[in-house]
Simulated scan of single mutants.
Amino acid sequence: MTEAFNLKIPHGGYVLVGDGRRALVLRNEGHALHVSLKVQHLFEAPPNPPTREQGTDRPPRVRQGEHRSAIAQTDWHEIAEHRFAEEVAATLDRIADAIPALIVVAPPRALASLRHALSDRLKHVVIAEIDKDLTKLPIEEIGQRLTRR
């Protein structure tokens, strides 16, 4: 069974559907009762291999008296996903005055990164945040899932 969210996306409202590697910015060219989402922008991140493939260093150790402890290794994969979210948010911020409403749809980690990267202007127009990965769905199905009653 597919999940429906019963949202009303106003005419001209935007939907950001993304994950840590891909993002779609969609605009509702229809109206709230008959949604017609059109792609405004597509973001594709460059290849981002797992951290274990990006670094070979062992975690450093710190000595405090007779005790030794390891410092957590840098997660390069996660850093790249945060940078990608910042790039998407910066592009949206350039057109923030033209966005009457924004719905953000992303898996939980990507949603947190996007939430942190959005400017205050954009945060004020966010009408819904949905923690789902819909990036691989056709655009028509994204609209149906968001507005199904």
Results as ranks from 00 to 15, higher is better:
130 I>K: 02
134 L>A: 05
89 A>F: 07
140 E>C: 08
43 F>L: 01
106 A>M: 01
96 A>R: 11
18 G>E: 02
105 V>W: 05
98 A>Y: 11
20 G>T: 07
35 V>G: 09
120 D>K: 12
76 W>R: 05
30 G>L: 10
104 V>K: 00
2 T>A: 15
71 I>N: 04
91 T>D: 14
39 V>Y: 07
83 R>G: 10
30 G>F: 11
35 V>T: 14
74 T>D: 13
3 E>A: 13
15 V>A: 06
66 E>I: 02
99 I>A: 06
34 H>C: 15
12 G>K: 08
108 P>W: 07
44 E>Q: 10
48 N>Q: 06
72 A>S: 15
140 E>F: 10
127 I>Q: 11
71 I>Y: 07
79 I>R: 06
33 L>W: 12
9 I>K: 04
84 F>D: 02
86 E>V: 11
117 A>N: 00
87 E>F: 11
82 H>D: 04
77 H>L: 04
49 P>A: 02
78 E>W: 01
56 T>K: 11
26 L>M: 08
30 G>A: 10
24 L>M: 13
101 A>Y: 03
70 A>I: 08
4 A>H: 09
113 S>H: 10
34 H>V: 14
130 I>L: 03
62 V>H: 12
107 P>D: 08
80 A>E: 05
37 L>T: 06
143 G>A: 07
2 T>N: 15
34 H>Q: 15
116 H>I: 10
87 E>D: 15
43 F>Q: 03
109 R>F: 08
27 R>V: 14
129 E>Y: 04
124 H>N: 14
47 P>F: 05
29 E>H: 13
133 D>G: 00
54 Q>P: 03
41 H>T: 10
29 E>L: 12
102 L>G: 08
94 R>I: 14
117 A>D: 03
24 L>Y: 14
88 V>E: 05
34 H>T: 15
84 F>V: 00
56 T>S: 14
66 E>P: 05
134 L>S: 00
19 D>W: 05
47 P>D: 06
78 E>Q: 01
43 F>E: 00
146 L>M: 03
31 H>Q: 15
77 H>N: 02
85 A>M: 13
30 G>E: 09
121 R>E: 10
72 A>E: 15
61 R>M: 09
74 T>K: 14
146 L>D: 02
45 A>R: 11
137 L>E: 12
137 L>G: 12
52 R>W: 02
75 D>V: 00
15 V>L: 09
111 L>Q: 00
137 L>V: 09
127 I>S: 10
44 E>F: 07
20 G>H: 08
12 G>M: 04
147 T>D: 03
49 P>L: 07
83 R>T: 12
108 P>L: 06
32 A>N: 13
70 A>H: 12
13 G>I: 01
27 R>F: 07
70 A>Y: 11
68 R>T: 15
